[in-house]
């Protein structure tokens, strides 16, 4: 009894320490986003803003373009926010549509051979920086550099492996006899997809979409590589204004960080239970 008690206390102590480590940086960023400029850097640091303000949010969310001159910067994120949202959504939607169709075809007909998903996965394992250099040259030639289409195509390619692997697991759970039954009853293959497979994997499709959306929303390296002035995502915007150490706008940047994080955290918790499937490579016992 005593030992159990002791173990319980020790467990909470250990977990509380990690909880503090986890929460402190998030807390700090959110708090900073509500601070006036005088409180951004002080000693001792202020953990609670004296007079909470929304000014940082107002600043970054007003229309206009970000500028950086003479050590002074103005950060505007409406455009990057829209770009990020548009690019990530489009790429994820198309990736889910194509990838799940392919996963279906592979599970049911073995199209592409037994190793196909592994081949796709091994392509995904190559660090993106390897391909980044020729990519720019290629995109310049095709006039795709700094365009929505260019970035969407790349994100489509990088999300597809994840979609395929996630959807494999969901589709394998639909008994093939259900499809047979529907076909014998007169449904065409397309009908079977629409009336049987789609409703039965709907949850999986949503989860997969959100998962790759988060990936695409967060991507920095390829976005930096393949955009210039026309297209700009949230991670790029953060990075652009980070390089200048002088006169850093902690508050507005914190506001950007909070804005960028919030939707992802919400989405993430929606799919929390299924999140692990995305990177389980079908290796998880049910």
């Amino acid at each position: 009894m005593m030992r159990r008690r002791l173990f319980g206390v020790a467990r909470h102590a250990g977990l509380l320490v990690w909880m503090a480590i986890t929460l402190a940086p998030i807390y700090w960023m959110v708090m900073t986003s509500f601070k006036h400029s005088g409180e951004w850097v002080t000693w001792p640091p202020r953990w609670v803003p004296h007079e909470p303000t929304l000014i940082n949010y107002v600043k970054v969310l007003t229309p206009g373009t970000s500028t950086f001159e003479l050590g002074r910067q103005t950060l505007k994120i409406l455009k990057p926010l829209w770009d990020s949202l548009f690019i990530a959504t489009t790429a994820s939607l198309v990736a889910v549509a194509l990838g799940s169709a392919l996963a279906y075809s592979w599970t049911r007909f073995g199209t592409g051979g037994r190793r196909y998903p592994y081949n796709i996965l091994s392509i995904r394992m190559v660090p993106p920086i390897v391909i980044a250099v020729p990519f720019v040259v290629y995109y310049v030639t095709l006039r795709l550099l700094d365009t929505y289409t260019g970035l969407i195509l790349v994100y489509l390619a990088t999300s597809l492996p994840y979609v395929i692997w996630m959807m494999l697991a969901f589709i394998e759970e639909v008994p093939v006899e259900l499809e047979h039954a529907a076909r014998v009853m007169g449904a065409s293959r397309f009908r079977v997809l629409g009336r049987i497979v789609l409703p039965l994997t709907a949850a999986g499709l949503v989860v997969t979409f959100l998962f790759v959306f988060i990936l695409n929303w967060s991507e920095l390296l390829l976005a930096m590589t393949l955009t210039n002035t026309e297209v700009s995502t949230i991670p790029i915007t953060l990075n652009k204004f980070q390089s200048a150490n002088e006169g850093r706008d902690y508050g507005p940047q914190a506001a950007i960080g909070t804005i960028a994080t919030l939707p992802v955290v919400v989405l993430g918790f929606l799919i929390q239970k299924h999140l692990v499937r995305g990177f389980s490579f079908g290796l998880l016992r049910k």
């Binding site: 039954a181 076909r183 014998v184 007169g186 039965l200």
Partner: peptide, 20 residues
């Protein structure tokens, strides 16, 4: 022929009722 054109009825081992 496609199955749907054959005018058959089929009962499966797992019954294959549509769960949704």
């Amino acid at each position: 022929w496609e199955p749907r054109d054959r005018n058959l009825g089929m009962v499966f081992q797992s019954l294959a009722l549509f769960p949704h």
